[in-house]
Design a protein around this nucleic acid. Structure first.
Lengths: 199, 199, 199, 199
DNA sequence: AATGAATGAGTCTTCATTCAT
DNA sequence: AATGAATGAAGACTCATTCAT
């Protein structure tokens, strides 16, 4: 399809994984090819340049990988619930799960989100616009409304609020370890469930 | 030796301002002394080193400036309201106002928040930890509870949610210009006001 | 990752050699990476940074190289003599030989000695403290005493004197070319031999 | 004579003094105008440039000052002794006294001696050649011979030896504080007195 | 497919010196 | 006589990228 051999794909995956870990550990500003090599025990930065056309292209792949992983997890969780209130709770808690199960990916996702905002990684826009998007959540809320479970004046704004609240709680949890993730997820769910039912 | 001249203060302010604009425009990772000089039309990066002991110190000053500006605006708005529901609304809308009136400061504040989160800027911790903190908001919510205006199970978590929601909405507005700030502020206020009253 | 290639060793040696020559010609204070590159006909100071972790590490290697070279020469000369008076003479004359055969190394050694004295080169202490030490000479003198060849009140002080005398004579010879090295070596040997025999 | 006012002379002296102290404390390589200003609590490096045509000229003056001070002390001590053996002892001990009484000057003298060797300070040659010279000592030894007190094959070489021995002992004392200066001076005097009497 | 040596632009920072005041 | 702001060259060092092998 893209004309790559099995070996090439494996190497690319290894480099992407190392980049994710490096982003998570030291942040974008210090994530150099050298740092990535150190992380993956690669012997030459030339290897990265050999497999990726440039730093932006590598970051693109990293973004795609991380977003896909988090998206899949979330979709699975949401699909398992039958009610929309249940789906909203699953949507929220899946982020905390992601952070718990794939902490490096979660931190890397934060970094990438920032990069997108800055336009620091040209060519990243299309891939990572998804990272900032709340479209899926909007749809969920709208369907919940149609099903009569929610009553929401403007689903788009609520979606923004929910998503921001989740991100902020996740970050605070990472930084300060204030409470266990489950409790945070439950309380956030409570808060927004209350909103969706009031007149 | 220690006190600063008028001229020095002016130059320092100019450099700080240029740094804020540069951060806003191209993000931290690309904010070099050279970029700052370009922004401020200075002829030599040596000038920055002449006025600031180092990059961390410059960033510290930038953080102080931005945080003070945003904090002052918010405090003023909140103080003008008599009810706690009013204060909550003012708290929320002040962020949108800040973004509207000082867009560069607002974007720079985002950058700095990231830096603090990554620990990438040594010596910034004390100044900018305030950027991540929601303490003021927690106090506001608690007082609102004591005054009988709010009923909130866990003010700390709600504060995290409110703050995250604001940041996310602000960000989206910057990026996608979805709605006018006033409407966003009003709707967010509605959402969280509803939460604070439900049983 | 850790072991060094043949090519690397060659480059490192070339850079070390160029550094020695540069130190000898223009002194430490002016020995910049740029100056070393000029000396070695290298195109970029980045090359030096590529092969050495930093300036202190380069200097360390230079010190090791120079000290080893001078130490080996001296040890060989001293070992060839059977009597302690002969050994003392060999010790003294080996310094003049070193200066004659490896003038750049000899001058560089002076520079490094100074650096150590000033503590200007961090991380050099252990390697180069040997440059200031007269321990070997003290041992030689003590053994000569035990063998009955010398009679010396305080070998440590005499060792300091001998070493200082040598260095000074070497220096003067470099600067003013007062006499041929052999004669200087012979006369110094005479002087100190006389001391070691008086009651 | 040189067309300088009293105030100018005072300032120059202050700067020279501060330079001596700075050289003594941190070595030549780190002795910048900034460092000198810090030492003397001067407010601007411009002041140094105002009073001295350049760094070499400042160093020249420093060298002159230090050499004069050490020379005067030595001459006084030597003149007080009536015998040549006494004069030789005074010559030796005066260096240790200098180090004790004016430690900064003594260390600065070392630095300057190095500079001269490197030719790092253009225009310093004539002044500081005296720092390396042993002419005075040669004369002393020769007169001692003529007076029948000494028997020395080559006074010039012995002078080099004596001077080198002194410098080395002084330096070691500074670094390692091995023995009290008086004892060192006495032992060196013994050593060289013995040389001067043997057949 | 991979290596690793090399490059050169770019990073922050220090420095002696200049100049208007 | 002195100040202090400014300059620009030079400092060590990092980085993504290239290329011969």
């Amino acid at each position: 399809m893209h004309g790559r051999t099995f070996t090439q794909d494996a190497r690319r995956a290894q480099i992407v994984q190392a980049t994710i870990e490096t982003l998570a550990e030291i942040g974008y500003a210090r994530t150099s090819f050298t740092a990535i090599c150190r992380q993956a025990n690669l012997s030459s930065t030339g290897l990265i340049s050999y497999h990726f056309a440039g730093k932006p292209q590598l970051l693109r792949e990293v973004a795609r990988t991380v977003l896909e992983k988090s998206g899949t997890l979330r979709a699975d969780r949401v699909a398992q619930e039958m009610t929309y209130r249940g789906k909203l709770g699953a949507y929220i808690s899946s982020h905390f799960d992601f952070m718990t199960v794939f902490p490096a990916h979660a931190r890397a996702l934060s970094e990438i989100t920032e990069l997108v905002r800055e336009g620091a990684a040209p060519g990243l826009d299309d891939v990572a616009r998804g990272a900032l998007s709340v479209e899926g959540l909007v749809v969920l809320l709208e369907e919940g409304c149609r099903a009569g479970e929610f009553r929401i004046p403007d689903p788009a704004v609520l979606a923004l609020a929910v998503h921001g609240a989740i991100d902020n709680a996740v970050r605070h949890h990472e930084l300060f370890a204030v409470a266990d993730p489950d409790r945070l997820a439950r309380e956030l769910t409570d808060i927004f469930t209350r909103c969706t039912l009031s007149p």
